[in-house]
Design a protein around this nucleic acid. Structure first.
Lengths: 165, 165
DNA sequence: AGGGTATACTTGACTGGTCAACAATATAGC
DNA sequence: GCTATATTGTTGACCAGTCAAGTATACCCT
């Protein structure tokens, strides 16, 4: 029995099912994708309701171009605007507008309720604590992502077997 | 702190990071996406090395059209072929070809090694058992192909090739 | 047998995201 | 100061997957 592989498979399946569920609810009720919602949430929690693109790259699990496109959409929706950083001309702040603030507040309520419902019917409080703790140890699951280190570990793991490649 | 929401967020992040790692390794070494690999694996384990599209829809976490497109790709790669079902003219079997058999055997090796590496450096065996069990309760996480215990068969599948890891 | 519904799969239009290449700015070392 | 390198972000080409709609077959009911 291989619990690592089992965990991986279930993580894949569980993620897909859960995300589809939440995504449908979020899209239907508030016209937001999961990533858009999470971006707004990060912005709301951020100091001055603004973040650099690079912070969103770390906070969401996206690539820089993904974030650029995400912000394009949010800007087109009128939920966010750009601002320059006087200290560093490279950065383009994303600033939460009032409309974005309102939208995320609306969405958060149903979103959190939906998630709680899914989890509450499957786990006890104690199990939820365990689950959160365990998932928090996954790469990138807590704090900022460190792709360099992780890829290195994978790259090192790939060829330990004479797999003809 | 809300453990349900925390779990959800970490599931999102962890899934994204992990999938990217595994996907990179699989793509670089064997030219397969995660879904393609998993489809081949399901086919290899299936009776007669063939499955209906609908079984793949259940076994992978995809929509029917996603599976159609996935099989298009695998067919173009020469790893799989179509077959009709004499009992039911609606179904289009996907049949694993020898090339597909070979490919998935090669890939399984490095794939499993990569996953074990990621998990082994973060969890004890006991924790892995817990994690697998908890994740198994997520919606769709235990979704299976024909037999009820097929997740276990994927998870516990001995690497199809003697894999020295 | 015939009509209605459910199942299995495909197709076209689209979307959210990736990657590679790039431009611009910042930082460090000589 | 001045070049080399790193950081921040954008763009074009592309890709895997979704959704809505459609085709074809199977099943059920009277």
């Amino acid at each position: 029995m291989d619990h690592a592989v089992a965990s991986w498979v279930r993580l894949l399946r569980g993620h897909a099912a859960l995300r589809r569920l939440v995504s449908t609810q979020l899209q239907a009720n508030h016209g937001l994708t999961v990533s858009e919602y999470e971006a707004l949430l990060l912005l709301e929690e951020a100091d001055g309701h603004r973040l650099r693109g690079v912070d969103l790259v770390a906070g969401l699990a996206l690539t820089p171009s993904g974030v650029t496109r995400l912000l394009d959409r949010l800007r087109k929706l009128g939920l966010v605007e750009r601002a320059t950083c006087e200290g560093d001309a490279r950065v383009a702040y994303a600033v939460l507008l009032d409309a974005g603030h309102a939208r995320v507040r609306q969405a958060a309520c149903g979103h959190v309720a939906a998630i709680r419902a899914v989890f509450a019917e499957r786990y006890t409080d104690i199990e939820l604590g365990q689950l959160a703790e365990l998932l928090g140890r996954l790469p990138g699951a807590s704090g900022s992502v460190c792709p360099a280190e992780s890829t290195a570990s994978i790259a090192g793991a790939a060829p330990p077997v004479p797999c003809s490649d």
